[in-house]
Design a protein around this nucleic acid. Structure first.
Length: 275
DNA sequence: CCTGAAACCTGTCTGC
DNA sequence: TGCAGACAGGTTTCAG
């Protein structure tokens, strides 16, 4: 589930309370439990537990799809990947859940739990976050990303537009849902080659991306299948997982294809392949 | 530089 | 009911 709007929702909750807990900001870590070793990307479990103990959470923010905790020394980075979720338990006496992989116990008795069914999620404790985050592309809402800049960047690549938007080094934060929805709103076929888009299309695409993400954030993200997180954007999907249903604009049947190994949903009429 | 496929994992759903 | 296969919000690695 976790694309930019979902991560943003989680970060907000961790900052201000919610997700069943007190605010994490300002809390001090007492200890860590690593329930699935591979969840920890770096450093080693021993070093991690030694270093994290006693650290204070100064600030929590998002970059791309990463949740970032700025500590009084170092940074804790968490990537939720496909099925990860973060929650706060008010009390650490609560039982550990089925797919809980990683726990931070705080001195006030609450704890932060990383739950991740598919075990793809990763955690880092680093001094220099840029080593991990450095390859990320520009944020979609960065004012420096103007229609013209996007157009030029699209020109410099020769990839399916769908694949390029999923590339985190191109723009950071878009995943399968928001890419399909953005391309639909922009009226651009997912298999168009990026360098073939016109400047007008690039402009439409940028505004479509921002509108779609905005709406996602407004709905607290999307909840799908058995991985539920409380968002409601799934009720506003226009093409994503709408295969076989009529396009809300023209009534044409929504189709599903595979692009870059990802299921891709679009309206054949509103998003013409063109030349 | 680019693409496709495979790998990392568990769970759900569909069709035979 | 059982079981194989497809599919799932992501990223990395490797072959071609």
């Amino acid at each position: 589930m976790p694309e930019l709007p979902e991560v943003e929702t989680i970060v907000n909750a961790l900052r201000h309370g919610g997700r069943g807990g007190k605010p994490v900001t300002g809390n001090i870590v007492e200890s860590a439990q690593i329930l699935w070793d591979k969840t920890l990307s770096e450093p080693s479990p021993g070093e991690f537990c030694a270093q994290i103990s006693g650290r204070k959470v100064e600030e929590i923010f998002r970059r791309g799809k990463y949740v970032i905790f700025r500590l009084d020394a170092g940074f804790l980075l968490i990537h939720l990947r496909m099925s990860g979720d973060l929650r706060v338990d008010p009390s650490s006496s609560t039982q550990v859940g089925d797919h809980d992989r990683f726990i931070l116990n705080f001195v006030d008795g609450s704890r932060l739990v990383f739950n991740d069914t598919r075990k793809f999620g990763r955690v880092w404790l680093v001094d220099d976050p840029l080593k991990t985050l450095g390859k990320l592309g520009i944020e979609p809402f960065d004012p420096a990303l103007t229609p013209h800049v996007l157009f030029c960047n699209l020109q410099s690549k020769r990839k399916y537009i769908k694949s390029l938007l999923l590339d985190q080094s191109f723009i950071a934060g878009l995943g399968n849902i928001y890419t399909d929805e953005s391309l639909y709103r922009a009226g651009i076929h997912p298999l168009r080659i990026s360098s073939g888009l016109t400047e007008t299309e690039a402009e439409r695409l940028l505004y479509a991306i921002r509108d779609t993400l905005d709406e996602g954030i407004k709905h607290n993200g999307a909840s799908i299948d058995w991985v539920y997180r409380g968002g409601s954007f799934q009720n506003s999907f226009r093409v994503y997982q709408q295969t076989g249903k009529p396009c809300p604009v023209c009534g044409t049947t929504i189709e599903r294809i595979v692009a870059g190994q990802r299921g891709t949903h679009y309206c054949p009429k509103c998003q013409p392949k063109g030349v």
